[in-house]
């Protein structure tokens, strides 16, 4: 019984999964740059946390670059470490 239910849940969940394509792989002209906080803002939550690639859809290579860029931007006070007001 339990096994079947689990299986059903799995298949149901898979229905909603849509394969995402890494935007940086799709468009080679896009550059990841720590000096451009406006572009990086897309990859952080309202609280300032970095969005996981499971949600953003980035590939591992570009997610690493994003992470590095966000951390550099944070050090230079171009981006927040946290945003507690929201």
């Amino acid at each position: 019984m339990i096994g079947r239910r689990e299986q059903r849940r799995k298949t149901k969940r898979r229905l909603y999964v849509r394969k995402k394509v890494c935007r940086f792989c799709a468009d080679a002209t896009l550059q990841i740059n720590y000096k451009d906080p406006r572009q990086l803002r897309y990859f952080i939550t309202e609280r300032g946390k970095i969005i996981p690639r499971r949600i953003s859809g980035n590939c591992a290579k570009h997610q690493r670059k994003i992470t590095l860029a966000v951390k550099r931007a944070r050090h230079l006070a171009l981006m927040p470490y946290t945003n507690m007001e929201i």
Partner: peptide
């Protein structure tokens, strides 16, 4: 001059 994301 830019506004800092947090005070330094």
């Amino acid at each position: 001059v830019r506004k800092l994301a947090y005070p330094v």
